[in-house]
Design a protein around this nucleic acid. Structure first.
Lengths: 214, 214
DNA sequence: GCTAAATTTCGATTATCATCGAAATATGAA
DNA sequence: TTCATATTTCGATGATAATCGAAATTTAGC
């Protein structure tokens, strides 16, 4: 959770729990300890509680710990293959991340479907609205609710942003529905199907470099 | 045990056990974990095994933890007096910290001996080079090796930076050699001698406010 | 080679922590 | 109001860690 927050974002408890792979109760327990220890700050916003690092010193602290700690040894070929799959394409909460998520984001930027609105957010251009309407998703009728529309989410494996928020989530669930992507059993990784491979090329001008074999 | 080793000394396991108030078995168990975690190094010298911090980064890490952590409640008058001494002047790994370390750093900045080079580093000005040559230290002939020359190290008690790195270490060991400062028995604290008091005034334009009495 | 000192390893006990189901709380929406 | 969602609190259980006695290991000095 701390590693995720190192990017400087504020995230709600549920999302941090998902990322850490624990239940919300467990995450809540850890988060409150981290608050007490002056490591995190929380900002209450309605029923969401956004957690973030308490100070630049904490970020410096974590970088130092990473510098002092011996690098985590990958113990087996299987683990290393799994790591490759996870780096290639995975879900981050409910949207695409990894190489695929980042490349898709870059191609949407290049094609003028989205643009960088602020350090923390993307926005959908009118061209993007049209393009996604053709794709079968009409974002002009989708209600925002409390959720951010298109978060710029820092990708730990690619060190670049991918699209999160409602846009990322809606797009990703559509990709699952159309079977462009499928979950890899037991991992956070996803694989691109043959249908997806041609779909990404035609619709997003994106050549998916390596297809992960199931 | 780590707090004791922050003074920069090497100590045997038995002594660290005594200081921490645990049996040698318990200390040994913790020390071996700290070795595995790259926090400590051990030097075997006959049947004694001398433990010390593994790197300046570990010292910086611990000072940062102290800076982030909420202050510990002081339980007794004696503890409070000890705390005062430690806050006044102490060694941080191998360089000066506390009020004295911070004031010395400020006076070197004011007198143009050093300047802020980056958020993490100081640098020695040409005036500083001359001044230290007069003092008897020629930094132009000291090899850097892998160590940072003059780190801006955050001071937990003063919430300001003091000089670490090679510059801080070289200066501090010279101060011990000339008996401007001496260790306080059983603590990380140091005290300024009468010689040091006049020396700091003449050479660094620094009035040492309170002399810690032994 | 023997003995004493410093330290570690082993094993058992006790204390503490992590975890999650169930229930409570808080908020926003219908 | 009622329902759904986000989050926390409580409580029980299983896992992990701390601790130290006993015994093993290492080495200095005799």
């Amino acid at each position: 959770m701390l590693d995720t927050l190192l990017g400087g974002q504020s995230l709600p408890a549920g999302e941090l729990a998902y990322i850490a792979g624990v239940t919300p109760q467990t995450a809540s327990s850890h988060l409150s300890k981290l608050i007490d220890a002056n490591v995190l700050l929380v900002e209450t916003n309605g029923r969401h509680r956004y957690y973030r690092l308490a100070s630049p010193e904490v970020a410096q602290l974590m970088e130092l710990i990473a510098a002092v700690t011996p690098p985590v040894r990958v113990r087996s070929l299987r683990e290393s293959e799994q790591m490759k799959k996870v780096r290639h394409a995975r879900t981050c909460y409910d949207h695409l991340a990894g190489r695929l998520g980042v490349d898709l984001t870059k191609s949407m930027l290049d094609n003028g479907l989205i643009e960088v609105e602020s350090p923390t957010d993307f926005s959908l251009t009118s061209q993007g609205h049209d393009h996604f309407r053709q794709f079968g998703i009409d974002f002009s009728v989708i209600k925002l609710g409390r959720r951010v529309f298109a978060r710029r989410c820092l990708d730990w494996s690619e060190r670049y942003h991918h699209v999160g928020g409602l846009l990322g989530a809606t797009l990703t669930s559509a990709l699952f529905e159309r079977r462009w992507i499928e979950r890899v059993e037991g991992l956070r990784a996803v694989k691109v199907t043959d249908v997806g491979r041609s779909g990404f090329r035609e619709f997003f001008g994106l050549d998916v470099k390596e297809i992960i074999k199931a």
